[in-house]
Amino acid sequence: MDLQLTNKVVLVTGGSKGIGYAIASAFHKEGAKVAIVARGKEALNDVQAKLKENIITIQADMTIEIEREQVIEKVLDTYGTIDILINNVGGSNGSTTAETKLELFHEAFELNYFSAVHFSKLVLPYLKEKQAGSIINISSIFGREAGGKVTYNSAKAAMISFTKALADEAIKDGVRVNGVAPGSILHPSGNWQRRLDENPEKINKFVQDEIPAGRFGTADEVANVVTFLASEKASWVVGATINVDGGQSKSNF
C-alpha cells in the first residue's frame, strides 16, 4: 500500500532506539524526510550511518523547554516545514507511590507528557496554516489500566486524555491527532530484553499467561500502525488511541 508519505517532513522524538527508531525507519522507507531527536549522541550517530539520506539527527534533552524549542527551529531551518509529529520519547522511574519521591513524578511527567504537549503546541501553527498534518502520541496500554510503574502509568493516562482533547480542537483546522498504545514490545535496547536475559523462564511464563497472541510484539509492528495513522489512508481516524498489544490489554474499550 502506498501511504503517500513521500517528502513529508516527520519529527520523531526519542527516535534513536527501539520503537522510536522503528518508527523513524518506517517513515524513511516510505520516502519521508525524517528528523530524529534523542539525548544520546552515539546512538544518533549510529542512526545517521544507517539511514544516511533524507534524515537529520538532533541531540537534545526533551525534558528541557528551551531545547524543545531549539529542536523545532532546527527542523524548520533544515526542511522549511513540518507535516507529522511523533511524540514517542518516554521512560519510567520510581516504584510504589509511597516510596517514590514527588520529584520523580515531576520528572516522569516532564518526559512522557509535557514534552508531548509542548511539541504539539510548537508544531500546530505550521500544520494549521497548511490545513493538513498529523500528530501521533505513543502512550501505553498501561495508560488505561494498572501494570507499569505509577509515575509512568499516570503520565501515559494523561497523554491518552490529551490526545482526544487536542484531536477535537485540531481537526477543525485539518490536523488529525491520534495515539498508539503498545503492549509488551521486545527490542534489543528495551527492558523486556533485559528481563528475558536475566530470567527467561519467568518472562516466558509471563508471555504465555498475559499475552493472548503468545509472544512479544515487535517495534516494527508498532511502526506499521503509526505510519498508517499518519497517512491520509487513516483520514477518518481522529482522537483514537489504538492498542498494539497482541490482545494483552484487559481493557475492553
Rank of each mutant, 00 (worst) to 15 (best):
G147T: 06
P188Q: 00
L124A: 10
V244P: 12
A213G: 00
G91S: 07
E201Y: 02
I171D: 04
G217H: 00
A223I: 03
H187F: 15
Q48Y: 04
G94M: 01
S92A: 15
G147C: 08
K128R: 13
V180T: 06
L229V: 11
L166F: 09
R39T: 15
E67P: 10
I136A: 05
Q4C: 10
E232G: 13
A132D: 15
F105S: 02
Y79F: 15
T163Y: 01
D197P: 07
G239T: 04
R39H: 14
L102G: 11
E30T: 09
I203R: 00
S95D: 11
Q131F: 09
L229D: 05
T13F: 06
K8V: 13
P188C: 00
G40T: 15
L196S: 10
N153T: 06
S95K: 02
N204E: 11
A230Y: 02
I66L: 12
A60Y: 07
R194A: 11
R195N: 11
L44F: 08
K205I: 11
I55P: 14
E42D: 14
E232N: 15
E65R: 02
R215M: 10
F27I: 08
R39I: 15
L5D: 13
N137H: 05
A146I: 11
R195K: 12
E73D: 15
R215S: 09
K205L: 13
A108G: 14
K17P: 08
N243H: 01
L196D: 13
T13L: 01
S115W: 00
M1K: 02
G133Y: 05
I23T: 12
H187D: 10
Q131T: 11
L122K: 06
S140R: 06
T96I: 03
G183D: 06
A181E: 12
K33G: 14
I56V: 10
V175L: 01
I19P: 10
A98F: 05
R215D: 06
T97L: 14
G217R: 00
K149N: 11
S139Q: 04
L111V: 09
L186E: 12
A35H: 12
G14Q: 04
F114L: 14
V34K: 00
K29S: 06
A24D: 13
A146E: 15
N224V: 00
A98W: 03
V12W: 04
T151Q: 09
K202F: 14
K121L: 14
A35W: 13
F253M: 05
L196I: 05
E169P: 06
M62V: 15
S115D: 09
S25Q: 12
S115L: 07
L111I: 13
N93P: 03
I203S: 06
E107M: 02
S115V: 03
E210N: 11
I171W: 06
G90H: 03
K74H: 11
K101G: 15
E30D: 10
Q59F: 02
S235C: 04
G91M: 03
G90E: 01
L85I: 05
L3R: 09
N252A: 02
N7H: 12
G214M: 05
F206G: 10
S92D: 11
Y21E: 07
